[in-house]
Every structure is written in structure tokens, then in C-alpha cells.
Nucleic acid binder design. Structure first.
Lengths: 309, 309
DNA sequence: AAATAGTATAGGAATAAACTATACAATATT
DNA sequence: AATATTGTATAGTTTATTCCTATACTATTT
């Protein structure tokens, strides 16, 4: 029992429309015997007669009518497969799995996604959180296509597209003396307790080095697993910490905020980028995506951050 | 740009499950290079990379994931096509187009269909009415697969399966003298006006010959196009007519019936059968269908009709 | 009875798919 | 650091499939 082939379905679909071998073969650009043969093979493969050969032309059997419908549906889906797989000319399409750092995604993606969906309705993003360390591992293992994370990332393992640089602010409780300052310098921090994110975050390193420079003391009894957690500890007077400007803008910049954020002098910054595996399937699409994100950041947050690239 | 083949989709589906060429090739029972080649052809056909070849195993690209899903769906439908087309072992399946004579179908099919649907849930019958003449023409032209009609049918053009024989009754108005008779013989009809169905019905011929034998007068100013029309004319006293027992049972055998039906002596009968084109695709299925109909008639109407075959 | 039209069959040529052998790339081992 | 080891790609050849031409067969027309 030979297998069905798409060729047979294509031929049969044409034949069932025309109901004449000669004409169908002509339309298909093959000879009539070739068509006869393929139809015979199809009938053998499905184990049923599909056409009755009669004086007055061909008649489809009930099975033939059924096969016609199914064949055309199948052919349509094959066509769709072909179209869908090809990276479309100007729009992003398909499903991309994006891993996002919790220190970036929640404050950046909501605005980006809205626009992205308008401009590229056929693009679906599956977004999953993870610590930068886990993101990188998942990316390399193929569980993500892209990750959005703080730079630097190991450029020998992933291809990076920088997106933007944002300032870091010092966060203090509202009743802390620094809260009234215009800006903060390293000397203001001598002896302060500093609360840090867990070491799997890029910000951890920066918090560490800033604390070291300024003579602040990193509290060993606390390690935040989210910016929100850090902020809440700051609000409770457990110490000071560092928060990125975009987070401040979206979560802190309100009258009734529980912490106060002050610019640092000299400014401390972090960079955020989009990354994918070297040799990954569709870098052009990824670059386009990066461009779209950048454009959106530029439009919405240009007073807060510096777009890179 | 070569065409996609089902073979490629089958191979790719296996590969995307196993994520290893060697193992996938082994499962497929082919050599690894053959698999490589077919996957390469598929990638060329869809115009996109589907897998990333990496040290730590294969990773599907976004397009690859999409193609996997679509391919498996397509393969499933191809499988279903194969299953659906093959005349199933014990149940009737598919869509059959049944042409039914208005003198048989409406009074027989309702009961048959209910059972048929229970016993063969995958069988769909598309039923269309038509005069026997039109039925035969439509059958031969392939617009029907089967017809249910009064016999005889031209056995050189169609294959016939007789189903049953039923008595014909004389129908008269309630106030007609014959209405009180136990039975009617030819001599009772001398001079009566007789109402006939149109000549395209099998019953027409029998009405004619009965009228001739009995000395009744066929009314030339009336030609019914349905048994109901004939019955209504009889009720209005326009004449007498002949109605088949099954029709009588389902439409007349009530207290308040507008006509009275009396058995004929000697009995007149008609035969009804199922027919299909000679050389038609699936005679076994048709024979099975005929058997089912017969069994149902036997169960429901054995006191009214004689099952044939 | 011959001609015409339409499909099936036969046999050989072209194409596609399979296999074996081997190259190549990357990681793991010594 | 050199050498196995593992896994995929490429080359060259063989086998299967698909196609074509030629022709047989059947039913209808002339």
C-alpha cells in the first residue's frame, strides 16, 4: 500500500474540477497517461475508486467527492504553510518566544506590545520572565528565541542588539535625609545600608560596585527578587537602593510614592538590549523587532533614556 | 522552487519530535543523509530555515515550530482522508446522494433514516425528490448515487435491488357507495371517473391499465403531481384513484380521513426498489444500504408490505 | 463500416530519492 | 595539545518513481 502524495492530491483536485483526463492533464502541463497513472495510484492508496469512467464523461464516486473536499483543504493548508513559513517581506510574523528580565520587561513591554500588535498583527510574542541567568540559559537551550535583558551579555554566545541606556537613581525612604537632595554623590552614601537584588540580576553587580565606591554597606540579610520587593524594603527604612529610571517612571513617579528617587552624580547607567543565539534562524526579523522596540522607546521615553544603536 | 511533498512533512515531523537526525532517520527507517537531504529540500521549498544545527542538539526556529504544527495537522488530515475514503468494514460512511420518488420517499424514509443514523452515524444521506423519470436521468448523469423508486427500472442502465411489494388500494370519497365495501372488484368501477398521477410516475401506468380493465374513465382534465394532490381531489368527489398501501397507512388511516381506501380484488401491487448506475463505485455499500432499508421495512411495515430479495 | 474521442497500458527516458562512503565541525578524552 | 568521539553535511552511485511517446482498447458518431 503506497503512500499518498501531494502530487496525487493536486492532480486529483484538478481532475475532479474538470472531469476529463485529457483537459485536466493539459491544465496540469503533463501528459494524459501520467495523470491516469497518478490517479490510479491515488485510488490504490486510498483503497477505493474515486471516479467512474463513463461514456458521457467522468463521475465522481461518493468517496471521490469526499476526497476532493479533503484534498483541497489539505492543499490549501500546504499552501498556507509555505506562505506562513517564509519570513514575510515587511511585517514580522509567526510566534516568537521572548524571555524578558523582570527589571526591564514589565516597565517597557506593555507600551511596546500595543504598537507592535498594530504594526505587525501576525506576530505573536510569547513572553516569559526569568532571571537574566536563566534567560541566557533558556535562550541557548532553544527555549527562547530572543531575550530582553541588561547588558553586557556574553557576545561569544549570543548576538546582541543594544536598545537603550537608562540612568540609575538612588531610592531612599521619604523621611530619609537624602530625600530632599537634588542629587547624590558617592560621599553622601558613606555608611548607608544598601539593599541589593539577587546576584543573578545584572543590577546586582552595579549595586555592589556603587556600594564599594561610595562606602555604603551591602546588607547581607536581604536579597530582593524583584524591583518591587527592593522598593518596598527601602520604603520601610531598611536601607537605600538603586532603581532604574524606567522603573521609577512607571512605579514611583507619583505624589503618593512610598520612596523618593534621586539622580546620582556622577550618573550611573545601565544598558538594555535584545539578544539571540548566534546562527539563529531569522536574524533579519530579530533586527527588525529591535528596531521597532527602539522606535517605540524613542517615541515614549526619549526624555528618560538614551536610545542606542 | 520545488514543491513541498508529504514525505518531507513526515520526515520533518519526526525530526522535530526527536531533534536528532540520526535517531529520526533510524525511526523512519532511512539513512541519515537521506533525511538531511529531504529536510534541506523542505527548507528550500518553504524558503526558511527550520532547524538550527547546534552542538547541543537541534533547535527549531520559530518558522520550524510553526511548520511542525501545520505539518502534523496536514498529516493528520491526509490520514483521515485515507481512512474516510476506504469503504469501512462494517459501517456505511460518507455522503450518499439519494434521489427518492415522492410516492415512496416521504412515507418510507423518515423511519428508515432514524435507524440508519443510529446504526451508521458516519453516513450522511442527501435526499432529493424528483419524478421517477428525472431521478433516472439524474442518476445516470451522476447527480445521484442511488435512487429509490418504483420498479421496473431499465436494468440495462442501472443495477436494481428490489426492496418490497405493496398493495394498491382504491381511494374514494367518504360518501361514495364503494366506501362501505369490504373490497372492490373490477366490475364495481365501470363508468367511474379515475384520477391519475402524472405520466412520469410509475403509478400512472398502473392506474391506466386498471382503468382500462375495469371500464373506468381516466379523467383527462386532471393529472396529479403528488399523492396528496390526488387524495384531495378524490375527497372532493372528482373521482376515484389508486393509492399505495404505505401512503394510505401514513396519511389516510385516521378516523377523520377525508377519503376511504378499499382493497382491490384481485390485488394490485407495485414494487419499489433501490437502484444505482452499473459500474458505480461502491456497490457493496449500496447493497448494504438496501439491506438496512429492507430490515427496517420488515420491522415496521411487515403487515403492510412484502419484503423482497 | 469507418472515423472520432477518450482512457488505459507498455516500454523507455528523465528525475528524484535512496544508499554507502567520507568529509567536516564540535565536543570530549587522554 | 593531540586524539577520539559524536553528529551532520556532502559526493557519488544505485534504485525507484515519474514522465513521456506510442499504441491498444471502448464507446460513440458519421
Amino acid at each position: 500500500m503506497p503512500d499518498i502524495t501531494l502530487r496525487q492530491l493536486r492532480y486529483f483536485s484538478t481532475l475532479s474540477g474538470v472531469l476529463q483526463y485529457r483537459e485536466a492533464a493539459r491544465q496540469l502541463g503533463i501528459s494524459q497517461p501520467s495523470l491516469s497513472q497518478q490517479i490510479a495510484l491515488l485510488e490504490e492508496a486510498v483503497g477505493a475508486r474515486l471516479v467512474e469512467r463513463r461514456r458521457s464523461g467522468l463521475i465522481l464516486t461518493p468517496a471521490g467527492r469526499d476526497v476532493t473536499q479533503r484534498a483541497e483543504r489539505i492543499l490549501g493548508e500546504v499552501h498556507a504553510l509555505k506562505e506562513a513559513a517564509r519570513p514575510a517581506g515587511d511585517t514580522l510574523t509567526g510566534t516568537l518566544r521572548l524571555g524578558a528580565s523582570p527589571t526591564v520587561g514589565p516597565y517597557l513591554l506593555p507600551r511596546v506590545l500595543r504598537h507592535l500588535h498594530q504594526e505587525h498583527p501576525d506576530l505573536r510574542l510569547v513572553i516569559r520572565d526569568g532571571t537574566p541567568r536563566a534567560l541566557l540559559e533558556d535562550l541557548l537551550a532553544g527555549r527562547h528565541d530572543l531575550i530582553l535583558a541588561q547588558l553586557p551579555l556574553p557576545e561569544d554566545e549570543v548576538r546582541v542588539r543594544p536598545l537603550f541606556r537608562e540612568d540609575l537613581r538612588l531610592a531612599v525612604a521619604r523621611d530619609h535625609p537624602i530625600a530632599r537632595a537634588e542629587r547624590v554623590t558617592a560621599s553622601d552614601l558613606v555608611g548607608e545600608d544598601m539593599l541589593a537584588l539577587s546576584a543573578s540580576y545584572g543590577l546586582h553587580r552595579q549595586m555592589m560596585s556603587l556600594a564599594a565606591e561610595a562606602g555604603a554597606v551591602l546588607r547581607a540579610d536581604f536579597e530582593g527578587t524583584s524591583l518591587d520587593a527592593v522598593r518596598q524594603m527601602v520604603a520601610l527604612g531598611m536601607g537605600v537602593s538603586i532603581l532604574p529610571a524606567l522603573y521609577v517612571w512607571s512605579e514611583v513617579a507619583r505624589r503618593d510614592a512610598d520612596v523618593v528617587c534621586v539622580p546620582l552624580r556622577p550618573a550611573a547607567t545601565r544598558e538594555v538590549g535584545l539578544a539571540w543565539r548566534i546562527g539563529s534562524g531569522t536574524p533579519p526579523a530579530y533586527r527588525r523587532l529591535a528596531d521597532v522596540i527602539r522606535a517605540r522607546i524613542d517615541a515614549d521615553f526619549s526624555d528618560l533614556v538614551t536610545v542606542l544603536g
